[in-house]
Write a protein that binds this DNA or RNA. Sequence first.
DNA 1: AAGTGGTCTAGACCACCAT
DNA 2: TGGTGGTCTAGACCACTTA
Lengths: 251, 251
Amino acid sequence: MTAPALTPGRLAPAPGLPLYRRIRDQLTAALARGEWRAGEAIPPERALAARFGSSIGTVRKAIDELCAANILVRQQGRGTFVTTHDRDRNLFYFFHVVPEDGPKVYPGVTLLAFTRGRAERDAAERLRIGVGDPILRIRNRLTVATVPVVVDDLTLPAARFPGLTERRFRDRPSTIYNLYQASFGIFVVRTRERLRAVRSDPLMAALLGLRAGAPLLQVRRVAYAYRDEPVEYRVSHIDTAHHEYYAEIDA
Amino acid sequence: MTAPALTPGRLAPAPGLPLYRRIRDQLTAALARGEWRAGEAIPPERALAARFGSSIGTVRKAIDELCAANILVRQQGRGTFVTTHDRDRNLFYFFHVVPEDGPKVYPGVTLLAFTRGRAERDAAERLRIGVGDPILRIRNRLTVATVPVVVDDLTLPAARFPGLTERRFRDRPSTIYNLYQASFGIFVVRTRERLRAVRSDPLMAALLGLRAGAPLLQVRRVAYAYRDEPVEYRVSHIDTAHHEYYAEIDA
DNA sequence: AAGTGGTCTAGACCACCAT
DNA sequence: TGGTGGTCTAGACCACTTA
């Protein structure tokens, strides 16, 4: 005498979806409205199973997907925790520049400029905002062992970052993506990057200590939050004379 | 009265590993020795559960991992199949060059050179063979809409490709990775790439119809088979004047 | 010792595909 | 209609962490 697989009414929305996906979406929604903060544990699986009126295996399958999306992290014997954008994580997932020889290291970051402006067509399209909408522009220079290697030009939709000032940006305690998460509830989940080789213009050459015309790796990255919302457009120029851009592709 | 979780003796090797991983490894081994060929269905889950003396859920978890590694593909109602390196798959997973505007298209491939030689240090290290071991060198030019965009220089460890001739390489029915799979049992599962911006030397410039010194995107890719065995070292030079290299990074 | 996630079972029923 | 993978249950026991 097994109970019917679907117990209607317990979890109302989208009855076409399997239960474990509806539970996953409920968890995502709870995360998005801040029920559990970054670094905190979510309730134990047995408690969640009771809350959603499902079996524990179904809750585990929902959590599995959130772990695969790097939104949650399991720790056996301790609990399941909301991922944080700490230094190590950031280095591992989002910083792809490695020295020609030797291990990856965390770069030094210098803020070169912090200005307000209005979105041009390129940035507006990528951030899915209107041309002329208010934006923030930030320029950083990254150094590895005091040698300048990367210049980052960030474009942020101002509407998503209310009250972000140069001081707040400069005095952030941790990584940039950690600031997005802790201060604005924006959790970067995925990025898409387009790369090309370009000639260095005089400005970039000066910032990186190169001759104009030297080849640079240009990376145009859009960072996305929970529901595929673009939240940052970043153009990087990388001097790959003694560093490389590293990518691992499955399958 | 539930049976004990572990039923010792049924699946001998590595008793420290969970059952579903041992089953996964058994399946991988069966795949590697050709028990089921590319494109064929593996036995149904119920049959595998009987064969391994486990419950169906445990077999499913093993298959889940092989699907995640893109070695198997499930099709509801039909069966579970061994992945093939067909054109679409190859385009999707391994060809990252997209036009500046418009959709990705499959490139035309022209074989420029096919020679035998001995491994230099760089290639030997990356392929984990000895310096001086026999290798095959292959040069291809890729065109998009008749415009040359990429020059690929492949280095293959000759020992892994016995009997591969220029004719056989040129007359392959499908993709290069499909040839590796169908003729040599080498299934490319993952690649690692290192990218940098370089100046075009005179030879590359001539092959791509550019002026020497033009910036090129250089990609050095190592392709790996089942157990992290390197099977191909490929250096690509890409003209990114009107094309881009596209990467998607999770988390 | 108590509490967490991790593995495994045995079986029911659903959704989909081929015939 | 019969066979496949997909979902779900209810519960046992294991492995690990913390107090």
